[in-house]
């Protein structure tokens, strides 16, 4: 493309936007709304999967040691458990620590707990074990039960199954939302572009009859789509960015038990994707929907 043609394309784009302000605003708004929906869906997906992960990470196995097992053997047991496949972490809470924690939890009344209990500590040593994969908790617990030193192994039987079902559902919902809203955004934008091009099909026809080549007609449309898509993308990133930051702050201050993703990396990833997507949709959408009107 020569320099004078490039200038022509820019001039055409500008005058088209200037002479059809409402059509241009409508296009920018459509792209903006679609990208906002998409942006929030992306954050929703990131949060649901993060939430699922965080719920799952709270699943742990408590294994209680027989009170008559000597300290050295408890330590040996700890190394053995650590070596088991699928074990992520093992924390040993000794009788003494356990008693101190228990005393603290009673507050003032727990001040001289040992003497109140007659000088003996009735608590067992306890292992807190986390599995690398929460779905393997059940089998891991069964394996732990093989150790004769352990009196009992607990992992919230029944609750874990339901929790895993819930987290799986959460993940599917996140993915479902982004797919559904992504499709809605595509439909919305393509209807808008089709309307734009359709309203100008007569102009396109005239241009062709006066001797314009397909690219001569296509370039201004493409550049206009690119600019309008970019404008919609910028508006969407600003609104999604501030909206999400506000929402995340609000949720973490009022519903503190819900883990909210506030990673800068995710934030910029979603934002740049929205911007690039705006431009690509604008340009490619116009170019594609022009096709059938160019055969004159």
């Amino acid at each position: 493309m020569s320099f004078s043609s490039a200038k022509y394309v820019l001039r055409e784009t500008l005058s088209s936007v200037k002479r059809n302000p409402w059509l241009s605003i409508a296009s920018v708004m459509t792209v903006m709304v679609s990208l906002i929906i998409l942006g929030f869906s992306a954050f929703f997906l990131a949060n649901t999967s993060n939430m699922a992960q965080s719920f799952e990470s709270q699943v742990e196995i408590s294994a209680f040691v027989h009170t008559n097992v000597p300290e050295t053997q408890v330590e040996a047991l700890e190394t053995k458990i650590k070596a088991m496949p699928g074990v992520a972490s093992v924390v040993l809470v000794t009788k003494k620590e356990g008693l101190a924690q228990f005393g603290q939890s009673l507050g003032k009344a727990g001040g001289n707990l040992v003497s109140d209990l007659g000088g003996t500590n009735p608590l067992p040593d306890k292992f807190t074990i986390k599995a690398a994969d929460p779905r393997r908790v059940k089998t891991l617990a069964a394996q732990l039960q093989q150790f004769t030193e352990l009196k009992s192994v607990r992992y919230g039987q029944g609750v874990v199954d339901r929790l895993l079902q819930f987290t799986r559902w959460l993940r599917w919902m996140g993915a479902g939302v982004i797919i559904a809203f992504g499709a809605a955004a595509v439909v919305l934008i393509s209807i808008n572009i089709k309307m734009n091009v359709f309203s100008r099909r007569r102009e396109i026809q005239i241009m062709k009859l006066v001797g314009a080549s397909n690219w001569f007609i296509r370039w201004p449309f493409l550049v206009e789509g690119l600019f309008l898509g970019l404008a919609g993308g910028i508006l969407a990133t600003v609104l999604v960015g501030t909206g999400y930051n506000w929402l995340a702050g609000y949720v973490s201050s009022t519903l503190a038990f819900l883990p909210v993703v506030r990673s800068a990396w995710l934030f910029w990833q979603v934002q740049t994707t929205l911007l690039v997507l705006g431009m690509v949709i604008g340009a490619a959408g116009s170019a594609l929907s022009l096709r059938k009107f160019l055969n004159v």
Binding site: Y8, R11, R19, R202, I206, V210, G211, A212
Partner: peptide, 24 residues
Amino acid sequence: FKLLPRKTVRENVGFALEVLGLQR
């Protein structure tokens, strides 16, 4: 007539030259 509705008279006439790639 087949005039371009969103272009001025001069631009409509000039369009036949624009497609040739002439200077503005």
